[in-house]
Design a protein around this nucleic acid. Structure first.
Lengths: 231, 231
DNA sequence: CGCGGCTTTGATGTTCATCAAGTAAAGTGG
DNA sequence: CCACTTTACTTGATGAACATCAAAGCCGCG
């Protein structure tokens, strides 16, 4: 179950240098007093569609997914955030309510910072505001560009993408354990579960990857890259 | 050809109340001195992929499209901006170069505001910065959500979307002239030109719409809405 | 007036989702 | 710990949705 952790000081947080670097010591203290580090276990939901946006969320450790629930109860995964990522999209500035749900893929530590405090600091400290926006707008921008990209590709290209995504972007290792099910891969790159499996098997038969349950080894990354590039 | 217009004062600009409302008189004057209103004709390109981001662009009048050029020289349209829209995405804050091209669909007047001035004002005036971000982050967020939405729908749903988009969102009229070709519709909602035409004809045969060249009349908006909703 | 791009329709083929059916793995309650 | 249930995974077969190809008329433009 989720539990509130012993709080660490923002001054020594890696995220500070990324997004809170333009704050004065006093301002950072204000953040420090209005944040909460919470530990979540796999499967737990951090925030739900339709609930009020109250916090800026930052992932210290672990892995989470951002998704929407469609009419037919199907889930559509929009993005996966890794440690040191700001979680969520810029919608937090334009929406009163969450339009996505966020849940935990690997046991995670998440830092909740009161959004009103952030907004207050932005008002008071324009330099921080600008710097902050430059940083986090990149996240939203990346998500959009990734989605556009994926949707121009056919299934093999999408599977290649997701394998390279985990290997290069998330784990920085050619051997890794898939943090999500085949079904979730399907929900993330817009295809059927069966075809996820089929194409993974195909890649395995071709010697491009090895599969042992959730464990994947990429044997021929350059070939995978080519499949991705060609679409 | 593009031509620089006689400049109007920002004080009397509609856009001011939308995004520049938190500026002081002096700050607004600074914008006023560092902006340029330019008139473009249909087909002209306003800014090109790969060129440096130097301005904040605001569409006063007309219609423009934002698109990417793929490897095979195909264009992929990302969004269409209408008057009073901020053009572009939040990438302007995180990228040094444009990642999209913007071109004109209907003769347009565009206001170029020096981005460095905007940034400077954000630094100096946090209240403006926060307000500004809340406003324009909505644009990026909408684009992302629209794309996610379109990609869950099948072709009929997409065509229904685009017809309702022009009728309700752009022209606010059930009768309108399509500002883009069938091919461009295809590029915007990710399908083949032939199928755009086929499904439009189908809708016409079913009496849902009338077509006379570029002119469309929506006879049964509620039916179109249902087709959109069902996907 | 002729050329190229846009539009349209039909025919064909490919890609992909869906269905079905079976195995393996992972929870669940006694 | 074992029977039970559910969920995940896997493969093959089928059909639907869609892109592509082909051919012809149309329109605008130099």
């Amino acid at each position: 179950m989720a539990e509130i952790l012993e709080q660490t000081d923002c001054k020594s947080c890696v995220f500070r240098t990324w997004a809170f670097d333009k704050l004065t010591r006093e301002e950072l203290d204000l953040i420090n007093q209005n944040k909460k580090e919470v530990y979540y276990e796999k499967g737990e939901i951090i925030c739900r569609e339709g609930t009020p946006v109250e916090n800026f969320l930052y992932l210290q450790k672990g892995l989470v997914k951002l998704y929407k629930t469609e009419k037919n109860d199907k889930e559509h995964i929009i993005s996966i955030a890794k440690p040191l990522d700001f979680i969520g999209l810029l919608g937090i500035f334009s929406n009163k309510k969450h339009i996505n749900t966020i849940s935990v893929l690997e046991n995670s530590t998440i830092c909740f910072v009161d959004l009103n405090i952030i907004k207050q600091l932005m008002k008071n400290n324009g330099e921080f505001a600008l710097d902050f926006i430059e940083k986090i707008s990149k996240v939203s921008d990346d998500v959009l560009n990734t989605r556009l990209n994926i949707n121009t590709k056919q299934l093999r290209g999408r599977i290649a993408f997701i394998l390279l995504f985990f290997a290069d972007h998330i784990y920085e290792n050619k051997h890794f354990e898939l943090p999500i099910s085949r079904k979730e891969i399907a929900q993330l790159i817009d295809m059927s579960t069966e075809n996820v499996i089929r194409i993974l098997s195909e890649f395995r038969k071709d010697g491009i990857i090895n599969i042992e349950g959730k464990f994947i080894t990429i044997n021929q990354p350059e070939r995978l890259q080519k499949i991705y590039d060609l679409g």
